[in-house]
Amino acid sequence: MATNKFQAIIEAALMVADYPLTVSVIQNLFKEEEQPSSTEIKAILSAIRDRHIDSGIELQEVASGYRLQAKAEFSPWLSRLWEERAPRYSRAFLETLAIIAYRQPITRAEIEQIRGVTVSSNIMKTLLEREWVKIIGYRELPGKPAILGTTKTFLDHFSLKSLSELPTLADFKNFETQDSQIQVQLALENSQSEPNDSEAIPQERNALLDEDDEGMLVPA
């Protein structure tokens, strides 16, 4: 099969899929005798990315694979296609999410210690229901408090391939925006000076974290 035919099929698959596609999933679109290699698929994906540089859509690699998506700069116009507006999250919600993302693995009590206030049960319920956060283990303390971490769904939602792509506070020090991704980053400012209790338990962190889970912070 010609390369341009492969590219057309792969681009069509990316367009209609409602979830990110991995290289192996893309390979399985084709019969075994005509399957392109992973190297060929990555070259085709690169060509698709280049083809859309000046268009309204882009090829984005996220934690779960590759997807075609509208460029963020066009969201003010595209949002008019839907009557229901995207949810606006409270500062408390964003602070909680930011602390989990940047300080994981972490317990609810540790989040409350950093924020200085109780974390609402509704906030925790929403984070778990959206599958942005999951329970990754339990602390060996009285009551065995749950240890929380982010997921691949969280990374996919914010168009991130891994946690290493999270922006730093310095990136937004003098920048104000209503974008939810940046709100999450700015919300963390209040927690930076607080100690991270999980740093004192490196063995427990290593035991609880799955190094293959890109949605989790892998210890150095």
Rank of each mutant, 00 (worst) to 15 (best):
A101V: 10
A70V: 04
A200Y: 09
A220E: 15
T126I: 12
T153W: 01
I114N: 03
E34T: 15
L21C: 08
S38F: 04
M124F: 08
L29D: 08
K152A: 10
I114Q: 08
A109N: 06
L127T: 10
P145K: 07
S90W: 07
S90R: 07
R205Y: 09
K42N: 11
K173S: 08
Q181W: 11
R108V: 12
E211H: 13
P76N: 11
S90H: 07
E165W: 04
V23L: 06
Q203G: 00
L59A: 05
V16T: 15
R103W: 10
L169E: 06
I111D: 04
E112R: 05
P142H: 00
P105W: 09
N196T: 09
E131R: 15
P36Q: 05
A8L: 14
V184G: 00
E83S: 11
Q104E: 15
E199S: 10
I44W: 02
K161C: 02
V119H: 02
R103Y: 11
V133S: 12
T177K: 03
R49A: 14
E95T: 12
I123L: 07
T96A: 15
E58H: 02
R88S: 13
V218I: 15
G137I: 08
M15W: 12
D179M: 08
K5I: 14
E214I: 08
S79A: 14
E34P: 00
H52Q: 09
S162F: 04
R139E: 14
I123H: 01
S180D: 15
F172C: 05
T22H: 03
T39C: 00
L128Q: 06
Q181H: 13
E211Q: 11
E73C: 06
Q192Y: 09
Y89L: 15
R205V: 15
A43H: 05
I57L: 01
Q27P: 07
N28R: 14
Q27Y: 06
D197T: 05
R51P: 00
T39K: 07
N28A: 10
Q192G: 02
A207H: 11
N174Y: 12
T168A: 08
V184Y: 03
L160H: 01
R85T: 15
T22D: 02
N206K: 15
L209V: 15
L188C: 02
E165C: 04
S90Y: 07
S121C: 00
L29A: 10
I48Q: 04
M15I: 11
P142D: 00
E211T: 15
E32M: 08
I135S: 07
S37T: 14
Q27V: 06
N28D: 13
A207P: 00
L141T: 11
T118P: 00
R115F: 01
E211F: 14
S37P: 06
L163Y: 08
S164R: 14
S121Y: 09
